[in-house]
């Protein structure tokens, strides 16, 4: 079973080669850091003092995550999940995938795993980008290497919260992209739900919106209403429920061609 899953994962991973999703991960991971790095270099004279500031990494990280989480992250997750899943519809390959010696469960989990690894790759690139915003200017003379140590552990914690915040988006986009041949349905639904989530950001019951959690993380909301419940607990529950529903709908599909 383990070997079968790994083979299936390898096969799914090969499909991402030169795909729009894989380019989007690279572009999405580096876009905000590149803009922020450009902004820092534009104010070159401030760099020497900024780089010796003890809060340098916190300032850079907060700015980068703020821009990333409000727009690019949800949009990127919607697009990457839909693009990877819809590869089979786009290339008319479901019929070949379903006549390979692998179970439907393996296909489902391998596809989901590839999406998760791609997203993880995006987050890693984004963190490398954050590091480069602070460290790259030191390549120029007169700019010191940042005095403060890069807060790796804190970065991983923050990244982890954003990943969990994105999981409901992954689950719902995955479900829709497995069900509908028309690419516009998952994309349209995804963008619609994201806009609705942004509108509901200050609503007291906004937590019911599955696409709101990365914005909650960015806004520093660690509880829901008057309770002590972390919104990410709800995000995880949304993910689990939607994935189970997506799996059941997938294996029950009458036409697998």
């Amino acid at each position: 079973m383990k070997t079968l899953f790994l083979s299936s994962f390898r096969s799914e991973w090969l499909k991402t080669r030169r795909s729009a999703a894989s380019w989007l991960v690279i572009a999405g991971g580096f876009l905000i850091p590149l803009i922020l790095l450009g902004a820092r270099l534009y104010q070159f004279e401030k760099l020497p003092t900024e780089n010796i500031h003890p809060q340098l990494w916190l300032n850079i990280s907060q700015r980068a995550w703020q821009y990333m989480s409000m727009l690019l992250l949800p949009m990127g997750v919607i697009l990457i999940t839909s693009l990877v899943t819809q590869t089979e519809f786009r290339n008319n390959t479901w019929k070949q995938v379903h006549t390979l010696p692998q179970s439907l469960t393996t296909i489902f989990t391998a596809k989901l795993a590839v999406i998760m690894v791609l997203l993880l790759q995006g987050f890693v690139l984004f963190n490398i980008g954050i590091y480069l915003i602070g460290a790259a200017p030191a390549l120029f003379s007169g700019v010191p290497y940042p005095a403060a140590e890069f807060p790796l552990q804190k970065s991983m914690q923050v990244t982890g919260r954003y990943i969990i915040g994105c999981l409901p988006i992954v689950a719902l986009q995955f479900l829709l992209s497995l069900q509908y041949r028309n690419f516009l349905i998952p994309i349209g639904a995804g963008f619609g739900l994201y806009i609705a989530s942004m509108i509901a950001l200050n609503w007291k019951h906004g937590y019911i919106m599955p696409y709101i959690y990365s914005a909650y993380t960015s806004a520093g909301r660690n509880t829901i209403g008057n309770s002590n419940t972390d919104p990410l607990v709800l995000a995880s529950a949304y993910f689990t429920g939607t994935i189970i529903l997506g799996y059941l709908l997938y294996i029950q599909k009458k036409d697998k061609a």
Partner: peptide, 14 residues
């Protein structure tokens, strides 16, 4: 078993 049903199933970017 090997199969080819209707049009060929290929990943266009590969």
């Amino acid at each position: 078993t090997g199969s080819l049903i209707e049009s060929p199933s290929l990943y266009s970017q590969l």
